[in-house]
Design a protein around this nucleic acid. Structure first.
Ligand SMILES: [Mn+2]
Ligand SMILES: [Mn+2]
Ligand SMILES: [Zn+2]
Ligand SMILES: [Zn+2]
Lengths: 153, 153
DNA sequence: ACTGATAATTGGAATTATTCCAATTTCAAG
DNA sequence: CTTGAAATTGGAATAATTCCAATTATCAGT
């Protein structure tokens, strides 16, 4: 798992902004998440990272994921009481929801247009300052391969 | 904790529809959730139910909450990895989101109009059948007491 | 390069919400 | 009543995550 130079820059500057160091472990965990389109759990990320860094500990994977989330590089996604999943956050301005197929267990990103986010904001009293929006839809994906802004099944 | 006659009817018919019996424990847990506007955890519900049924077990509270959720009478609400919370579901057609104030820890219901749900449906490919929508907003409630369709702080 | 201070990582133990299980109790029908 | 199924119970088990003290890596200043 190798990290493109540009992504490396992104990681290092985001970490630096928070007064944090770039390490082999952080680079590798970030590379794995950035390359993962399937919203893996911490355990799955641990498995994938160990192919490059066999000595990394699960604690470090958890620590690093928390760090990357707090730096705004990674998103933590929770469905019901299942283990947390993680996905890369490329553009900080863009929002996306998650569709969880209860049949296949797969997770799909669903792009949320700015207008939808505005509508949502309008539903809340103005004294509520929104920090984070988590929209999880669950159901069944029966039908052929979807196209557009939704990941293939 | 006493259950109004009408609510008792609601409970009994919902349970009967699923081939389940109405019991003292189920009545009491349902009564507590129905009367709770603060989205209590299973533990908090356990405490409140024990005032009426001191001998009830925590396992039964968990079992009953799962039963009530599967009967569509109660909603299970999850924020991040915090313990699950529960709220009553009076009208089956109405949807509501949750605002979680990270300062006070309080939870507010936010009514979602049908138009918003339609907009959401339109964002998904038609082959995705929606079973459930969980919308959780977190942020800070700074300002005076909100009014309207939002619970008081 | 060397050193000291600080940050990060590590393995394993601890935490804790929830689930599981076998035994007992309750219930409703015949 | 009797009886079989359903529900409840206490306590053990589970499992994702967090915690912790010890080790290791990194950086800044010499
Ligand atoms: Mn080691
Ligand atoms: Mn007892
Ligand atoms: Zn995603
Ligand atoms: Zn609610």
């Amino acid at each position: 798992m190798m990290l493109p130079t540009q992504a490396k820059q992104t990681l290092e500057s985001a970490l630096a902004e928070h007064g944090l160091r770039s390490t082999r472990q952080r680079e590798c965990v970030f590379a794995v998440v950035a390359a993962s389109m399937d919203h893996p759990t911490a355990d799955a990320i641990y498995s994938r990272v160990r192919e490059s860094l066999p000595g990394i500990s699960l604690a470090t994977v958890y620590n690093t994921l928390e760090t990357l989330v707090s730096c705004g590089l990674v998103r933590q996604v929770n469905f019901e009481r299942e283990p947390s999943r993680y996905c890369p956050l490329s553009e900080p301005g863009k929002h996306h929801a998650h569709f969880h197929c209860t049949r296949s267990g797969k997770v799909f990103d669903v792009h949320l247009p700015e207008s939808f986010m505005k509508d949502l904001e309008a539903l809340l009293p103005p004294m509520f300052r929104i920090d984070k929006v988590d929209l999880c839809i669950s159901g069944q994906n029966r039908g052929e391969n979807p196209s557009g802004h939704v990941e293939p099944d």
